[in-house]
């Protein structure tokens, strides 16, 4: 458990093999809702990453003090502390992003990824391992949000990170569908099918 390769695997497995959104199918709501543009997607990813890493760190620091029978309410209080912090920070320093993300910022508190990592990993492992695990899962989550945001923004509006990236004829008739909910469902369905095809996994 303490050798280097397994430590590195805490970090890397969250990105592809145990990707929270695409493989474990948790945290779907924010992934679909906030990936309308690349910038919003990455912003949501960053906010969620702060909460995942922060609560992983605090729970693993306090893991010897938290009694098993009441651990879930304590986890929820720790998580909601971080959510409140990021909620107010975004409101103060990134008001434009906060308006777009809206109710999804406070809803990070019920994101299964956060409670799942805290319960399954941070409560049983040391601080540094928990940090690596949180970082890996956050990167995996942010990666999916970013990629979906880039694709949806490119086809839906013809821009990338707000900058014009396509010829005029493309932007005159963009695939508006991609900016609306059907596009998000379609895209994640195609992602999931590609994973089933190339990762030789039995579909569930």
């Amino acid at each position: 458990m303490n050798n280097k390769s397994s430590r590195l695997s805490y970090l890397t497995r969250g990105i592809i093999l145990e990707n929270p959104t695409l493989i474990l199918m948790i945290g779907l709501c924010p992934t679909l809702a906030t990936s309308i543009t690349a910038k919003d997607g990455l912003g949501m990813g960053a906010a969620a990453s702060f909460v995942i890493i922060g609560s992983n760190l605090v729970v693993s620091l306090l893991r010897k003090l938290i009694p098993t029978s009441i651990r879930i309410p304590i986890f929820i209080i720790i998580i909601s502390t971080f959510v409140t912090i990021i909620d107010y920070v975004l409101q103060a320093y990134q008001p434009a992003l906060y308006r777009v993300l809206g109710v999804f910022v406070p809803l990070i508190v019920v994101n299964c990824i956060v409670l799942g990592r805290v319960e399954a990993f941070a409560y049983k492992h040391g601080v540094f391992d928990s940090f690596l695990d949180g970082l890996g899962k956050s990167l995996g989550f942010t990666l999916v949000l970013g990629v979906m945001g880039i694709i949806r923004e490119f086809f839906g509006a013809g821009t990338l990170f707000g900058k014009i990236a396509t010829p005029v004829w493309f932007r005159q008739y963009p695939m508006l569908l991609m900016l609306f909910p059907p596009g998000a469902f379609l895209l994640i369905g195609i992602f999931k099918a590609l994973i089933n095809k190339f990762m030789k996994q039995e579909s569930l």
Partner: peptide, 21 residues
């Protein structure tokens, strides 16, 4: 085969959502 299960459920949701638009 690749579309069985979740992928086709998402795509079906996409079509129902299109109707709701």
């Amino acid at each position: 085969r690749s579309f069985r299960g979740y992928p086709i459920a998402f795509i079906a949701a996409s079509l129902v959502s299109l109707a709701f638009l």
